[in-house]
Design a protein around this nucleic acid. Structure first.
Length: 281
DNA sequence: ATCCTATCCTGTAGGC
DNA sequence: TGCCTACAGGATAGGA
């Protein structure tokens, strides 16, 4: 569900509201997420204070004292929700409830349980199996056309699946992959290894533009995603193609097409994203 | 190595 | 109203 802009929105809010707080109590649901949540996790973070919040691709990293980090992934339906007051309204599907010493509460809610909570020693984080395989983060290191072209050399899979591959570049998901390719005027069905330098240049520029614009609007709420305050993101009305099958292209009026690639929906304009179209930039 | 499929899980929307 | 199917922002294991 949440892609880089949504995760970055949550990171910024956590940085503003939970950094500096000390964990007093932890309650776990006991249900497995993507992997079982270790019993040692509750013990490990109790008494720790949160020193910082970082992000790599779609992973959130709570930097704790004592050389510990809490690695978190929202999967398809995960949310971190913060409550400042005394009263915390009951919610279903809460898998971790962190009570702070000052009485505030942070909860991890995840109905589909594809998320991840893992306690990792800070010095081992870069070698953690979830983190070690990630490609570069496009906010920390903005991609260049040449860097993308080098990573795609020889690949026969589609450019859409290339953008979704977290080993190639970390943080892009199904919504922004379609949006980026539309704005770069590239057909999502093209083989990644066959794109020209100018096409990679356009894709690199649109990766940065789309992600930064979405961050500025607190991300996209398609259905489940919410910010730390349970508010929706505001990028939804900026979407050019995602979830717009049969609706007119905002540029040329041609009906937007939906196709399936790797069991995921892809949306594109068959006219603006064809090689015959004259890109207008 | 790369590519593709199936799988994990719950909620929701739409057709009948 | 209920029942059914399809689909949903993700990652990964396993086989070709």
């Amino acid at each position: 569900m949440p892609e880089l802009p949504e995760v970055e929105t949550v990171r910024r809010m956590l940085e503003a509201h939970v950094v500096g707080r000390t964990v007093r109590a932890v309650r776990l649901s006991g249900l497995a997420l993507r992997e079982p949540v270790s019993r040692g996790l509750a013990r490990g973070i109790r008494g720790r204070s949160i020193r910082g919040m970082s992000r790599l691709g779609k992973f959130l990293i709570f930097e704790l004292d004592e050389g510990l980090t809490l690695l978190s992934h929202l999967g398809m339906s995960g949310r971190w929700l913060f409550s400042d007051g005394e009263r915390v309204e009951p919610l279903p599907h809460v898998h971790a409830r962190i009570g702070f010493a000052d009485g505030s509460t942070l909860r991890f809610q995840d109905p589909r349980r594809f998320g991840l909570l893992r306690l990792v020693r800070a010095e081992r984080l870069a070698r953690d199996r979830a983190i070690a395989s990630l490609g570069p983060d496009p906010i920390a290191s903005p991609p260049t056309g040449e860097s993308l072209r080098a990573r795609a050399r020889g690949l026969t899979a589609s450019v859409k699946s290339f953008l979704l591959d977290q080993k190639k570049i970390a943080g892009i998901g199904n919504i922004y992959a379609s949006e980026i390719l539309f704005r770069a005027h590239v057909d999502p069905r093209r083989r990644a290894g066959a794109l020209k330098g100018a096409e990679w240049d356009a894709i690199a520029a649109e990766i940065s533009a789309v992600l930064n614009e979405a961050i500025a609007r607190s991300g996209t709420t398609f259905s489940m995603y919410r910010t730390l305050w349970n508010e929706p993101g505001e990028y939804g009305d900026q979407l050019r193609v995602y979830d717009r099958a049969r609706e007119p292209c905002r540029t040329c009026g041609t009906p937007i097409r939906r196709i399936v690639q790797g069991q995921r929906s892809t949306y594109f304009c068959p006219r603006c994203q064809s090689r015959k179209a004259a890109p207008t930039g």
